[in-house]
Design a protein around this nucleic acid. Structure first.
Lengths: 215, 215
DNA sequence: CTCGAAGTGCCACCGAGTGACATTTCCTGT
DNA sequence: ACAGGAAATGTCACTCGGTGGCACTTCGAG
């Protein structure tokens, strides 16, 4: 018996460029989406810690054992597209011209991601409120920041080389960038996402590049 | 029966300015110290996750329930003096003259903490290796960084005011500072702690203040 | 239509962490 | 010195996230 409304299965072996989605794959995606949807609702209603995996699994209609074949941990429910977002960021970095300085590259990233965030501001603000009040989610977010910092440092080194001085400089720049970006986003979130995130991001990068010393 | 070699109890009501340590307090401190010592040894021998709280408690001679009256979590065993270190940092911040700029304040902090770190370099490098390979410890470390960033932002705001622009700037500067400090320390750790940490810290702060743009 | 594999459920288990309550241990006031 | 009481500890039972093993169902390919 189907646990959820089964969606139409794309006719198999029909279109040449069709996705060739069978029942199995469709069911998996439906389960994945249901997990994310149900979890987000209950997290926001009852809180992250107060919501049990058994609760979520019962509502979705799967066993807890099966849940862990979709997500490696409870926290991962809150950051579903983590890998994709990182991948897009890496793309921005690798697509950058070889002579572009790191701050300009990040400005381009800001102009790409900023508007997207502002478009989903309500959802993101709520999401961030949940993260901010849940220690284990803050920890997960920090881990994500570390990933971004690492790929950024690697990207800089790809241009400046990996000798001692250059490596230190690359890591320090990456740390500073992630630091100001995270601080900017936290401020944007806590003020309800009403300000211009793109502008704030570019301002922060300006400060980094030109120094905070200007009077 | 004593669980561990009981140390000499300071004669009660002896010296006027004696610490007035009774058996109870002495025993508590001995237990606390034993927990830290035993835990660190086993963490480094067997790894953090492979070491069970039951293992540690058995060796120290207490129940697991009692352990949680000394530490709020297993991770806290690795950061025993977290509160004290933060407190000292706050002191550096609050002791700063009202007209000192944030970077000079941090330079003073660097000159205070840097040499201490270099004095214990072997221990700290081993410690950091453990943290680096243990996700839950990395998470805890990130949380500590957040604390430092928060007190720094607050300290800056105490001087610049809390109006929108000043608040953003304070948070961004704090984020950048923690970012470069963390990056610097990670580099110092991964290179075995042989370089001059104080110098590297001051260099990083110079970059922040004057900007990374200099050719 | 059949065979194999992917997906799932069930069960037992582990380890971290908590609440309740009894028991021991030490400090303090007389 | 001794009694009363508070602090510290132990015991037990429990919750919840997470994992390993194995049987079973379901789907897809030939």
């Amino acid at each position: 018996m189907p646990r959820l409304s089964e969606e139409e299965v794309v006719e198999r072996s029909s279109g040449d460029e069709g996705k060739r989605i069978g029942r199995r794959e469709a069911r998996k995606r439906a389960t994945y989406a249901a997990l994310v949807t149900v979890a987000h609702r209950r997290f926001h209603e009852d809180g992250f810690d107060a919501t049990t995996l058994d609760d979520i699994c019962a509502e979705v209609g799967i066993s807890r054992r099966t849940f862990f074949r979709y997500f490696k941990s409870k926290e991962d429910l809150v950051f579903p597209n983590r890998a994709e977002r990182l991948e897009r960021f890496v793309q921005v970095l690798t697509d950058a011209p070889a002579d572009e300085n790191p701050f300009d590259t990040l400005r381009r990233a800001t102009r790409q991601f900023g508007p997207e965030y502002m478009a989903h501001r309500a959802q993101l603000v709520a999401q961030q409120a949940l993260i901010a009040r849940t220690p284990s989610l803050r920890a997960r977010e920090a881990e994500i920041d570390r990933d971004w910092e690492a790929v950024m440092a690697r990207a800089i080194m790809a241009r400046t080389g990996t000798e001692r001085a250059a490596a230190v400089r690359a890591r320090v720049i990456a740390g500073a960038c992630i630091g100001v970006i995270r601080a900017t986003m936290r401020h944007w979130f806590t003020t309800g996402g009403v300000e211009d995130l793109t502008q704030m991001g570019e301002d922060a990068l300006d400060c980094l590049e030109r120094g905070f010393a200007l009077e």
